[in-house]
Amino acid sequence: MFGFILFIAVIGFSLSDRKELTMPEKFLGDSVGFAQSLFYKPAGIIAGFFEDIRNLRTIHEENEQLKLMAAAYARDKINYNFIEQENKRFKEELDFTERQEQLYNYKYRIAQVVAVNNDTSNRTMVINLGSKNGIKKNMAVTTVDGLIGLVSEVRPFTSTVMPITELDEKSPNSNLIAATILGKIDSFGIISSYNQETDRLMMTKIDEKDKMIVDDVVITSGLGNVYPRGLVIGTVENKQVGDFGLTYTASVKLAAKFDHLTEVFVVEVQDIEDAAE
């Protein structure tokens, strides 16, 4: 036993005293290092594989978040554009009513178009205001752009509007429009019919000395106690000699846009209301 301990001590002393390893020791160390590298590299590859999986999962989650953010941005952009357009329209309508009320003492009731009848024999539209809202028959209906027509039927909560595109001088139920030219008080004519093929109103009874010209703005004159004065109808497109050569007629391009009507104004005038009773 003593001899074995002494052998170990001698070996330890000899090893500690040496500055360089023997060839067998070097070989043994390199072999152990190589074997360790064989195990370490697959372990590193496997660890990197799982790390890549975690990274892919993180990237996927970030991708989903970006998709959601892009969808939310697109939705918000659409909402913004819609609100911006509505705001612009409301400003135009407010400016329109303020300007009109300064010119003439009218009240404007805004109404939504809830139905449109495109029957060729009876083109009408329905608005969401009725007698409960103070609407009465023969009240004029307009938009920011121009005259639309007259209230033809009234119910408690809705009313029917007969558009000016249904004007026909041969019809006993048609309210012809007494018209004049903006800025020319001596001009006068009657909007008596609508040509569906040309999409133009016909203005008749124009005096041969009338100074109206192309592009003049045609407005209601207020005569006849039906349509209040000052509502824009359209613009003169051409002027020609009428029947028998005694008066002139003019083709009038509509100012109002009848496609996709959503909001209109019902014009409330005391004199018109009294006349309608």
Rank of each mutant, 00 (worst) to 15 (best):
H60Q: 14
E93A: 10
F34V: 15
G3V: 13
Y248I: 03
N63W: 08
N133Y: 04
F188H: 09
P156Q: 11
D145Q: 12
H260I: 05
A140G: 05
I213N: 08
S14H: 07
A74K: 03
L147R: 03
G146S: 03
T22N: 05
G234L: 07
A111T: 08
A250N: 00
I164E: 07
K170F: 08
N117M: 04
S14A: 13
V267K: 04
S221W: 06
K257D: 15
D52L: 10
I83R: 07
L167F: 06
Q36C: 10
D274G: 00
V141K: 02
N122R: 10
A178V: 02
S193R: 06
A72C: 00
V144T: 14
S193K: 07
S171Y: 03
F4S: 01
T262M: 05
T249F: 04
E166Y: 03
N117C: 08
N122S: 13
S31M: 12
L66Y: 12
P172H: 02
T247A: 01
N122P: 00
F157W: 07
N105P: 01
N81G: 03
Y73G: 02
N87F: 07
V232R: 09
M23W: 05
A250L: 05
Y194F: 15
D119S: 11
V232N: 06
F49P: 01
Q85H: 05
L261T: 06
L56P: 00
L231I: 15
T97D: 01
V151M: 03
I8G: 01
L38H: 11
E84T: 04
M1A: 11
T262N: 11
D119P: 00
R57D: 15
V252S: 04
V151P: 04
D52P: 00
R229D: 10
Y40N: 14
V144A: 04
A115E: 14
I8D: 08
E268A: 07
N175C: 07
M139C: 07
Q36P: 00
I135M: 07
L147T: 12
I59R: 12
E84W: 02
I110R: 08
S121G: 02
D271G: 15
S152E: 15
F2K: 09
A74G: 04
G44D: 15
S37C: 05
S221M: 02
I53H: 04
D95F: 06
K132D: 15
K257R: 08
N105I: 02
G245S: 06
V32W: 09
D210N: 10
P172A: 03
I206H: 02
S37I: 10
